[in-house]
Simulated scan of single mutants.
Amino acid sequence: MEQLEIREGARRQHRGLAMFCVLYCWHHNKNAVFLRKELLLRYLGLERMKTTRYEWIIEDITDYFPYIFKRNKNNNELIVFSKIPESELLENKNEAIHFFPKILDLANYSIIGLDADGDQAYKFIEDSMPFLSGIKNLHEFAINNALSLLSNGIVQPAKVLESRLIKK
């Protein structure tokens, strides 16, 4: 029974991420998204990914992205979710975007305590959202919360799906 619960939890995680990636691609008019493996592991709450988990991801998101493959760039492993075949994507790299939505900035805050200078941003988060300190996976929380806000019409897509520039 425990294995079934683990699998179902993983399925929900994968599909939630896939749905966000679909919206992210739609907003940026792209057919694929490059996810850094490190970011994917943080979202999944894992330190490493076994072959079985990768197979689960493929199984769970092929309805959203029929092509899933791995790439290496500058010693960074990327997982690619794509609506077009790998060969076609590699011919036109402008069809893809790196997955780095600003909403994940919420997950990058150190919620457990204020920094040495008592930074106001941390204090604001602690004061306005004290429940965040009890959440174990802030990356998953940020994505799922964004999906909920979008689906209920509370926020506009541009506000949630905006991309942050990444260092290359």
Score class of each variant (00 low, 15 high):
27 H>C: 07
27 H>P: 01
29 N>L: 10
29 N>T: 11
29 N>C: 07
30 K>H: 10
30 K>C: 14
30 K>Y: 10
31 N>I: 01
31 N>F: 13
32 A>R: 03
32 A>Q: 05
33 V>F: 01
34 F>N: 03
34 F>S: 01
34 F>G: 00
34 F>V: 01
34 F>E: 02
34 F>M: 05
34 F>L: 09
34 F>Q: 02
36 R>W: 10
36 R>N: 05
36 R>C: 02
36 R>G: 04
37 K>H: 14
37 K>P: 00
37 K>C: 07
38 E>P: 00
38 E>L: 03
38 E>G: 03
40 L>C: 07
40 L>S: 07
41 L>R: 14
41 L>H: 13
42 R>H: 12
42 R>C: 01
42 R>T: 05
43 Y>M: 13
43 Y>S: 11
44 L>R: 11
44 L>A: 13
45 G>N: 13
45 G>V: 11
48 R>T: 12
48 R>W: 08
49 M>N: 00
49 M>Q: 07
50 K>R: 13
50 K>A: 06
50 K>E: 10
51 T>G: 04
51 T>D: 09
51 T>R: 11
51 T>Y: 05
51 T>L: 05
51 T>M: 03
52 T>K: 09
52 T>C: 00
52 T>G: 02
52 T>Y: 04
53 R>C: 00
54 Y>R: 15
54 Y>P: 00
54 Y>V: 08
55 E>Y: 05
55 E>T: 03
55 E>K: 09
55 E>C: 01
55 E>A: 09
56 W>H: 10
56 W>E: 10
57 I>C: 05
57 I>Q: 04
57 I>S: 02
57 I>A: 03
58 I>V: 15
58 I>C: 12
59 E>H: 10
59 E>T: 10
59 E>A: 12
59 E>C: 02
59 E>S: 12
59 E>D: 14
59 E>V: 01
60 D>A: 06
61 I>C: 14
62 T>S: 14
62 T>V: 14
63 D>M: 10
63 D>S: 15
64 Y>L: 08
64 Y>D: 11
65 F>D: 05
65 F>H: 08
65 F>C: 08
65 F>W: 12
65 F>R: 08
66 P>H: 12
66 P>S: 12
66 P>Y: 11
67 Y>K: 06
67 Y>N: 11
68 I>E: 01
68 I>K: 02
68 I>M: 06
68 I>T: 10
69 F>L: 08
70 K>E: 15
71 R>I: 07
71 R>T: 08
73 K>P: 00
73 K>E: 14
74 N>V: 03
74 N>D: 15
74 N>W: 11
75 N>S: 11
75 N>D: 13
76 N>H: 15
76 N>I: 13
76 N>E: 15
77 E>K: 14
78 L>W: 14
79 I>N: 04
79 I>T: 12
80 V>E: 06
80 V>M: 07
81 F>P: 01
81 F>D: 02
81 F>R: 03
82 S>G: 04
82 S>N: 06
82 S>M: 05
83 K>D: 05
83 K>A: 04
84 I>Q: 05
84 I>E: 10
84 I>P: 01
85 P>C: 03
85 P>H: 11
85 P>L: 05
86 E>V: 01
86 E>F: 02
86 E>W: 00
